[in-house]
Each structure stands twice: as C-alpha cells, then as structure tokens.
Design a protein around this nucleic acid. Structure first.
Lengths: 333, 333
DNA sequence: TTTAGGCGAGGAAGCGCTTCCTTGAGGAAG
DNA sequence: CTTCCTCAAGGAAGCGCTTCCTCGCCTAAA
C-alpha cells in the first residue's frame, strides 16, 4: 500500500505539498506539482478514501436506497436501467455509490438512524409502486435526497426530484390514438395515489379534451399484468364501443392485450393500444407495442448530478427536473 | 455528530473500554459493557466507518462490478434480481455494497488500478453475455472475487463462483419435453463460448442420450429475441419433423415462438417448448412459457456470503457453489 | 506472607490524509 | 536600506476509531 508519504519522499517534498499537488491546489509551484504527479504515477498512488473522508469530514459517497417491497415488483428492468445511468454518471466523479436496503419491517426512526449512520453525503430513491411512504420519511431527515419520479405532494417539505415528462408522454400517446381515428378512448391507470398516475392521466385527459373527446373512460389498476387484464375487462364491459386504450405500463398492457384477444378484439384492427415504459415486453408481445419511452438512463444520470448540486448547495431550494419522453411506434396502433 | 468519546464520557469509562464494549470484546466487565451500550443507545452513537476502516486497515465494503456493455443487454431484470439478493444479504452484515463501473474504453491495467484504489475488501461480478473478458482480467488481481455464473474455464487461475444448476435444470427441461411425448427435440443455445451455454447443452444432451434420442439438433444463438427467432427458423429448416425445442432463455423463446407462429406451428399442440430464466416475459407471452427458474435472489445472496468467506480465508482455495433450479410448468409444453 | 498469574481497564500511538498556522524567501514600497 | 507584503512550503495537529502495551488489582499457588 503506497501512501502519500511515499509519494512525498519520492518527489522530494513534504507531505503537505504532496497533498496540495494531488488535490490541484494552486499554492504549489508548477514544477514541484509536476514532480509530485510523476511520483504518484510511478508509485501507483491512490489516496485512501477512508483517510480522506476522515480528514475532510465529507464522505464522497452517496446512497441509493432500495426498498425491499419495491424491488420485488416486476418493474425490475425499470430499476436496472435507471441504476445504470446513475452508475455511469457517478463513475465520472470520485464518489462512490453505495446500495442501502430499507427493510420492510424496519421502523422509520431506525431506518433514519441507519441512514445517517451510513455516513453518506446524500441519498437517492428510485420511486416505484408501493414506495409511497419513503418520501415522507426521508423528508424528516436533513440529508440531501433526490427522487427519481415525482413523489405525491406532501406540502410538508420541498422535495427534490427528477422525473420523465409523464404529462407530455401521455399527450403523445393520446394523440397517436386520435390520429389513428379513434374516438372512444379509454385509459388504464396505475394507483390514483401515485404521482405518475396523476401526471399521466392529466396529459391523457388534456389531449382528449382538446379534441372534444370524452376523457372519462378510466379504469384504475396497479401497474401489474393481472391488474391490467382485469381493468381491461372492466373497461370493455362498461364501454363496449371502445376503440382505443392508453395503458400506463407495458406490464398492464400485456394483460390488457390478453383480455382483448380473449374477447375477440383484434389489436390494432378493432382497437388501438398505446402503453408506457418501452420495456422488453413491448417487443416480445404480439403485436409489438407502441409505447412511450422514458429516458431511464438519463433520468438515473441526472439524479446523480442533481444530488451533487444539492449537496454542494443544501440551502438552494429543491431541484425539480423533467426529461422528455418519446413515442416509440410499433404495431399496436 | 456523536463520537466514541461522547459515549465513553456518558458511560464513565475510557474510550478504549467503550470501543471494546461496542465491538463486543470479552475483556470488558459485563456491567460496564451494559453501561456503554446504554450510553450509545441514548446518544444515538454510530461508529464512523471511515475512522474504523482507517484504524482497522479493513474496509468493510465490497464492490459489485458492472460492466458497461453488460448491463446494456436486455437481461436487466436478471441483473436486478440477483442484485436484490445481494443487497438483502449484505444488509445483514455491517458491510457496504458499492457499485463500480467497468467502462468499455478502459484499459485492463487502468481498471485494475481503479479497483484497487477503490479500497474494497472484495468484488463480485454478475456474469452475463459479452462479459467474458472480465474473469480473466480479475484473475490477475489478488483481490478476492466471486462470480455469479461460471466463467469459462481458463486454467490460469482458480476462480470462485456461484452458479445455478444449469445442467440439472436442462435435464428437467429435456425430461419435460420427453414426458410430453416429444421425440425430435432441438435446442437453441447461447454462444458456445459461454459457460452457461456449455452447461445447459450438456444437461440437455445427457437427458436425451439417456432416452436414446437424437441430441444433435442444435442451433447456436445469442440469448436475444431476434437471435432466437432466427435460430428457430434454422432449426425448422433443417429438421422439419421437430416436435419439441429447448430454448436457453426466455428472450430467445419470445423470438422462437414468433417464428413458430409465423410458420403455422402451434405451441404446444404441434411443438412443445421449454425455456430458461423465468423472467416476466414467460408470463406475458402467449402461450405462457414453461421455463426453468433460476434462484437469482439466492444466487445473489450466496455470492455475498461466499465473498465474505473468501475475504476471511483468502488462501482456502476457490469456492464453487451450485444452487438448484426448478421447472415452472405453464402452457408451452 | 510472598510471588506468580490472570483479568479488566486506561494511556497513547497510529491508521493516511487534510489543513491551520507558521516560517522563510523574495519583491515591492517607503 | 529597512519594512511590509505575498507566495510557496513545511510542521504539526487532528479527523474518530482500534489496539498494543502497560498497570493495578485480585485470586491462587507456594
């Protein structure tokens, strides 16, 4: 293990100077600085993060909080893709990304304590279904936190989040349906309590209203396949003349398509369908789904940079960013 | 920030004693130990991991290496599920899991240096397609490393890995096909170079041979949907009398089912299909896939414990564990 | 009663780094 | 020529913890 002292000795300077040179401080003579760099390179020196953290009182590491219920859901690839973006972004910095589990049976205070004990500079949460109590919980902490996905408004605290443009994406979806000549368009939503559901419904209704269409054909569901199948059946029962449907997740769309087929409705001949997410399922299903793509990778990356900003300027107020979604046209419209 | 000194003062003992009590050392009087525990609890004391790491010369953190090419593949949910198991297991210890990116354009030496600079006690790699050079690379390091998935044998170094029972699972798959009365059974493999492909092919052929069936109807593919579709076509062209097929991933199965339908072969009436993985796709496809389930969650967890063992006893030789797979019966046989 | 031994507890050093504070040298101003 | 200031560099303290070493006490053996 090569330490800063070794480097200093090799370069013929004091440890102080070596430290300054390594950290790019400007109070060191260029020539010596170069010598230190050379020595460090030669010896393969890498600062010990623990020592650094201890001395600086900072940690240079951020947490990604994984809720136990959460990841058990089937939206895993959603999670993985966002994670990928985050990892890629964090690799550009000299920070570390540590994964933290929020166990189901853990009390709020205990988790908060645990989080603070983890000695990270900030935390990130990828919001998925069932994850709704976490924002409220983390708002109590004074640790900088960024969410991926808009938490449902709790006026209590100004939370920071990065989200995809769910409203815009839903407008896109609705307009694709309308452009295909559909006039009786229903929607299968996620839980009304979730921010995503609300935003997507808003966009959908906005677009339909703008075209003078009835935007009240809605069925609430749970983002899962079985739920989608069931909601589709409800919708069909209630509005037999349905000729288009916007489904708020690929997973639910898989269920919906099943119901549609079972009822003898052809997609897209008899009824058009647009879903949301653009996961693998969209391409393995038959027909392949026209779906709204979320820039998961970029969302993950932006989450990291936003957190960095938050850490740098904790008082600067919440960061709220929305990244554009896009429509991927396949065969279901 | 409450430190050990605070706790010591509160408990009326020296810092040394407090440290011993906290760490459960036995050379401290039970009564005092209790006092320390109480003080720590009262003050909400949490040892600073950086200080601890510095003093102990250990790091109490392990890395999960994510290869850039790797996670871009579509097997994301595979990754996420294993990750989940790992996180859950690591949460039981006082270690931290840090995510490390192996960038595509990064040279081997540079990555190795980076890895060592990360000051982790060990590393884990979830092996997926395209990931074949990483084992070779990490074998050069003297850092304890555990793979999820058997790396292709390179006699150079004795690598540790955890794997699911690919051979056994494939036997299960083949036998299900045979039990359904199929006699002309083909197989769509992953790249022959990969350990998984080899193991699964072995199990498959073993089972067929045992029943005196022709086990030479094999088509190599790439674990992806498009590849599966194409391989299925090849197989059908070559062996028109095919009545069963074992496909080594759900993703490829999606493609294969598409080809089968396009050629007017009904599943499972005309041809039975068993795949591997049991991902979401298996349930969203039509028909729902009979598939071999891997205990991804447990694999991830076991990977963590194996690494811990390796760190504790670096000289004890490689750890190689195989966890049982099971057949999930659905509608494609 | 003396001595050896064990045990619980504390002092102090030290892990590798950053940074405050001090010092010395050189140049500008008086 | 002296004084003041600036700048580069080093000494040393200290981040919070562990652990080696030492010390005092009590019990057991002689």
């Amino acid at each position: 293990m090569v330490t800063l002292d070794d480097v200093a000795r090799e370069a013929g300077v004091s440890r102080t100077t070596a430290s300054r040179a390594i950290n790019g401080k400007l109070t060191v003579h260029p020539e010596r600085s170069a010598a230190v760099q050379r020595a460090a390179e030669k010896l393969g020196f890498r600062p010990n993060p623990a020592a650094r953290s201890l001395a600086r009182g900072r940690h240079d590491s951020v947490a990604l909080i994984v809720s136990e219920t959460n990841i058990e859901g089937m939206t895993n690839s959603f999670f993985a893709m966002a994670l990928h973006g985050a990892i890629r972004e964090i690799a550009k910095t000299d920070q570390q990304l540590v994964m933290l589990l929020r166990a189901n049976d853990e009390s709020d205070e205990k988790f908060l304590r645990f989080l603070e004990a983890s000695h990270v500079d900030g935390a990130m949460v990828i919001l998925e279904a069932h994850n709704t109590e976490l924002p409220r919980l983390l708002a109590q902490s004074d640790l900088p936190v960024v969410f991926l996905g808009r938490p449902t408004e709790s006026a209590e605290a100004p939370l920071s989040y990065i989200d995809s443009d769910n409203v815009g994406g839903s407008v896109l979806a609705a307009e694709a349906l309308i452009a295909a000549g559909r006039r009786r368009i229903g929607v299968i939503t996620g839980p009304h309590g979730m921010g995503v559901s609300q935003d997507r419904l808003r966009g959908f209704q906005q677009a339909l209203d703008a075209h003078g269409l009835d935007s009240s054909l809605v069925a609430e569901s749970d983002f899962q396949t079985a739920g989608g199948a069931e909601a589709m059946a409800r919708l069909l029962d209630q509005y037999p003349d349905l000729d288009g449907v916007f489904v708020m997740s690929d997973l639910m769309a898989a269920g919906a398509v099943g119901t549609l087929k079972a009822r003898g409705r052809r997609v897209p001949e008899d009824i058009s369908l647009v879903s949301f997410d653009d996961t693998v399922i969209a391409t393995t299903l038959e027909p392949r789904l026209t779906t709204v793509r979320q820039p998961l990778d970029e969302l993950g990356a932006r989450m990291v940079t936003a957190l960095a900003e938050l850490i740098a300027a904790p008082t600067a107020g919440p960061i709220r960013d929305t990244l554009p979604t896009s429509l991927v046209r396949r065969d279901s419209v």
